[in-house]
Computed example of a mutant assay.
Amino acid sequence: MTLGQNTKFYETPNHPYQDDRIAEESGLLGRYGLKNKEELWRTQSQLRSFRREARALLGREGAGGESADEEAQEFLDRLRRIGILGNEAGADDVLSLEVTDLLERRLQTIVYRQGLGNTPKQARQFITHGHVEVNGHNVTIPSYTVPVSEEGSIEYDETSPLADELHPARSEGQE
Protein backbone atom coordinates (compact mmCIF):
# COMPACT_ATOMS: atom_id res chain seq x y z
CA MET A 1 0.00 0.00 0.00
CA THR A 2 1.35 3.43 -0.87
CA LEU A 3 1.13 6.41 1.41
CA GLY A 4 -1.20 8.39 -0.86
CA GLN A 5 -4.13 5.96 -0.64
CA ASN A 6 -7.12 6.60 1.55
CA THR A 7 -7.49 4.34 4.55
CA LYS A 8 -10.53 3.92 6.74
CA PHE A 9 -9.89 4.49 10.44
CA TYR A 10 -13.05 2.75 11.55
CA GLU A 11 -14.94 -0.50 11.23
CA THR A 12 -18.54 -0.68 10.11
CA PRO A 13 -21.04 -2.88 11.99
CA ASN A 14 -21.07 -6.56 11.08
CA HIS A 15 -24.87 -6.60 10.80
CA PRO A 16 -26.00 -3.37 9.16
CA TYR A 17 -29.75 -3.74 9.74
CA GLN A 18 -30.39 -4.26 13.45
CA ASP A 19 -33.18 -2.10 14.80
CA ASP A 20 -31.75 -1.80 18.33
CA ARG A 21 -28.28 -0.76 17.16
CA ILE A 22 -29.66 1.69 14.60
CA ALA A 23 -31.90 3.32 17.23
CA GLU A 24 -29.02 3.57 19.71
CA GLU A 25 -26.72 5.09 17.07
CA SER A 26 -29.38 7.60 16.01
CA GLY A 27 -29.84 8.66 19.62
CA LEU A 28 -26.10 9.22 20.04
CA LEU A 29 -25.92 11.15 16.76
CA GLY A 30 -28.63 13.53 17.95
CA ARG A 31 -27.35 13.84 21.52
CA TYR A 32 -23.78 14.67 20.48
CA GLY A 33 -24.57 16.47 17.21
CA LEU A 34 -22.47 14.11 15.09
CA LYS A 35 -22.50 14.67 11.33
CA ASN A 36 -22.94 11.02 10.40
CA LYS A 37 -22.50 7.49 11.68
CA GLU A 38 -18.94 7.39 10.40
CA GLU A 39 -17.94 9.74 13.23
CA LEU A 40 -19.56 7.40 15.74
CA TRP A 41 -17.94 4.33 14.21
CA ARG A 42 -14.56 6.06 14.29
CA THR A 43 -15.00 6.74 18.02
CA GLN A 44 -16.09 3.15 18.63
CA SER A 45 -12.99 1.91 16.80
CA GLN A 46 -10.81 4.16 18.93
CA LEU A 47 -12.43 2.71 22.07
CA ARG A 48 -11.82 -0.82 20.76
CA SER A 49 -8.14 -0.03 20.25
CA PHE A 50 -7.89 1.35 23.83
CA ARG A 51 -9.49 -1.83 25.16
CA ARG A 52 -7.24 -4.02 23.00
CA GLU A 53 -4.15 -2.23 24.32
CA ALA A 54 -5.39 -2.53 27.92
CA ARG A 55 -5.98 -6.28 27.51
CA ALA A 56 -2.48 -6.71 26.11
CA LEU A 57 -1.00 -4.77 29.03
CA LEU A 58 -3.01 -6.79 31.54
CA GLY A 59 -1.75 -9.98 29.92
CA ARG A 60 1.88 -8.85 30.15
CA GLU A 61 1.40 -7.60 33.71
CA GLY A 62 1.61 -11.16 35.07
CA ALA A 63 4.89 -11.77 33.25
CA GLY A 64 6.48 -8.78 34.98
CA GLY A 65 9.32 -6.67 33.66
CA GLU A 66 10.02 -2.98 33.94
CA SER A 67 9.30 -2.19 30.30
CA ALA A 68 5.76 -3.59 30.60
CA ASP A 69 5.13 -1.49 33.72
CA GLU A 70 6.48 1.64 32.03
CA GLU A 71 4.38 1.00 28.94
CA ALA A 72 1.25 0.50 31.04
CA GLN A 73 1.94 3.70 32.98
CA GLU A 74 2.43 5.69 29.75
CA PHE A 75 -0.82 4.32 28.33
CA LEU A 76 -2.78 5.17 31.49
CA ASP A 77 -1.19 8.63 31.71
CA ARG A 78 -2.22 9.32 28.11
CA LEU A 79 -5.85 8.40 28.89
CA ARG A 80 -5.76 10.51 32.07
CA ARG A 81 -4.41 13.52 30.14
CA ILE A 82 -7.35 13.43 27.75
CA GLY A 83 -9.79 12.99 30.63
CA ILE A 84 -11.09 9.53 29.86
CA LEU A 85 -9.74 7.94 33.06
CA GLY A 86 -9.61 9.21 36.62
CA ASN A 87 -6.38 9.56 38.59
CA GLU A 88 -6.81 6.30 40.50
CA ALA A 89 -8.04 4.20 37.56
CA GLY A 90 -6.05 1.24 36.30
CA ALA A 91 -5.79 -0.77 33.10
CA ASP A 92 -8.79 -2.90 34.09
CA ASP A 93 -10.95 0.26 34.23
CA VAL A 94 -10.26 0.86 30.53
CA LEU A 95 -12.27 -2.27 29.76
CA SER A 96 -15.39 -0.75 31.33
CA LEU A 97 -15.26 2.49 29.29
CA GLU A 98 -18.23 3.35 27.08
CA VAL A 99 -18.30 5.19 23.75
CA THR A 100 -20.01 8.13 25.51
CA ASP A 101 -16.86 8.60 27.64
CA LEU A 102 -14.95 9.38 24.45
CA LEU A 103 -17.73 11.46 22.89
CA GLU A 104 -17.82 13.67 26.01
CA ARG A 105 -14.17 14.65 25.39
CA ARG A 106 -14.80 15.97 21.86
CA LEU A 107 -14.37 19.72 21.37
CA GLN A 108 -17.89 19.94 19.94
CA THR A 109 -19.42 18.46 23.10
CA ILE A 110 -17.32 20.58 25.46
CA VAL A 111 -18.17 23.80 23.58
CA TYR A 112 -21.86 22.90 23.90
CA ARG A 113 -21.56 21.94 27.60
CA GLN A 114 -19.78 25.22 28.37
CA GLY A 115 -22.65 27.15 26.79
CA LEU A 116 -20.75 28.59 23.84
CA GLY A 117 -23.30 26.97 21.52
CA ASN A 118 -27.04 26.62 22.09
CA THR A 119 -27.14 23.10 20.59
CA PRO A 120 -24.48 20.51 19.73
CA LYS A 121 -25.06 21.25 16.03
CA GLN A 122 -24.55 24.98 16.58
CA ALA A 123 -21.39 24.25 18.56
CA ARG A 124 -20.15 22.22 15.59
CA GLN A 125 -20.93 25.07 13.21
CA PHE A 126 -19.08 27.60 15.38
CA ILE A 127 -16.03 25.31 15.45
CA THR A 128 -15.94 24.55 11.71
CA HIS A 129 -16.40 28.24 10.85
CA GLY A 130 -13.41 29.17 13.01
CA HIS A 131 -15.19 30.99 15.85
CA VAL A 132 -13.70 28.87 18.66
CA GLU A 133 -10.14 28.76 19.93
CA VAL A 134 -8.48 26.37 22.34
CA ASN A 135 -5.50 27.57 24.36
CA GLY A 136 -5.10 30.57 22.04
CA HIS A 137 -5.15 28.47 18.83
CA ASN A 138 -8.02 28.40 16.37
CA VAL A 139 -9.28 24.80 16.11
CA THR A 140 -11.70 23.94 13.30
CA ILE A 141 -12.01 20.20 13.98
CA PRO A 142 -15.16 19.29 15.99
CA SER A 143 -13.77 15.83 16.81
CA TYR A 144 -10.61 17.26 18.42
CA THR A 145 -10.07 15.45 21.73
CA VAL A 146 -9.61 18.14 24.37
CA PRO A 147 -6.99 17.38 27.03
CA VAL A 148 -8.01 18.21 30.60
CA SER A 149 -5.30 20.89 30.76
CA GLU A 150 -6.87 22.80 27.82
CA GLU A 151 -10.51 22.46 28.87
CA GLY A 152 -10.59 25.79 30.72
CA SER A 153 -9.05 27.72 27.81
CA ILE A 154 -11.88 27.20 25.29
CA GLU A 155 -13.42 30.50 24.21
CA TYR A 156 -14.60 32.46 21.22
CA ASP A 157 -11.87 33.70 18.89
CA GLU A 158 -11.31 37.38 19.65
CA THR A 159 -11.54 38.27 15.94
CA SER A 160 -14.86 36.44 15.59
CA PRO A 161 -18.13 38.39 15.47
CA LEU A 162 -19.35 36.00 18.19
CA ALA A 163 -16.87 37.54 20.63
CA ASP A 164 -19.34 40.44 20.92
CA GLU A 165 -21.71 39.68 23.80
CA LEU A 166 -24.62 41.26 21.92
CA HIS A 167 -24.31 38.96 18.89
CA PRO A 168 -27.75 37.43 18.15
CA ALA A 169 -26.39 33.86 17.84
CA ARG A 170 -25.26 33.91 21.46
CA SER A 171 -27.75 32.94 24.12
CA GLU A 172 -28.49 34.96 27.25
CA GLY A 173 -26.41 32.78 29.57
CA GLN A 174 -23.16 32.90 27.57
CA GLU A 175 -20.10 34.74 28.77
Rank of each mutant, 00 (worst) to 15 (best):
Pro168Ala: 08
Ser96Met: 11
Ala91Asn: 09
Ser171Trp: 00
Gly65Asp: 04
Leu166Ile: 02
Gly83Tyr: 02
Tyr144Asn: 07
Asp101Ile: 05
Val148Thr: 15
Ser67Leu: 11
Phe126Tyr: 15
Arg106Gly: 05
Leu166Ala: 12
Leu76Ala: 00
Arg81Thr: 14
Arg60Gly: 11
Glu53Val: 01
Glu88Met: 04
Phe75Leu: 11
Val139Arg: 01
Arg113Phe: 00
Ile110Asp: 00
Gly117Phe: 02
Arg170Thr: 10
Leu47Asp: 11
Lys121Ile: 10
Glu165Ser: 10
Asp69Arg: 15
Ile154Tyr: 00
Asp93Pro: 02
Gly152Glu: 15
Ile127Trp: 09
Thr100Asp: 12
Ala56Thr: 13
Glu53Ser: 11
Val132Glu: 11
Ala68Val: 14
His167Arg: 04
Ala56Asp: 15
Gly59Val: 03
Ala91Val: 14
His129Trp: 05
Ala163Val: 02
Arg78Ala: 14
Asp157Leu: 09
Phe126Arg: 11
Leu85Ile: 07
Tyr156Phe: 15
Pro161Gly: 13
Leu107Thr: 12
Pro120Tyr: 05
Glu165Gln: 08
Ser160Asp: 04
Arg78Met: 12
Leu166Lys: 14
Leu47Val: 07
Glu151Ile: 03
Thr119Gly: 02
Glu133Arg: 12
Ile154Lys: 00
Tyr112Ala: 01
Glu71His: 06
Ser149Val: 11
Gly86Tyr: 03
Asn138Tyr: 00
Ser96Trp: 03
Gln125Val: 02
Gly90Asn: 05
Gly136Lys: 13
Val94His: 03
Val111Ser: 03
Tyr144Asp: 10
Glu133Lys: 10
Tyr112Gln: 03
Glu74Tyr: 08
Leu103Val: 04
Thr109Arg: 07
Glu71Ala: 13
Thr100Pro: 06
Leu79Asp: 10
Leu47Met: 08
His131Asp: 11
Arg124Asn: 14
Glu88Tyr: 01
Arg78Thr: 11
Leu79Val: 12
Thr100Phe: 02
Glu133Ser: 07
His167Asn: 15
Leu57Asp: 07
Leu97Thr: 10
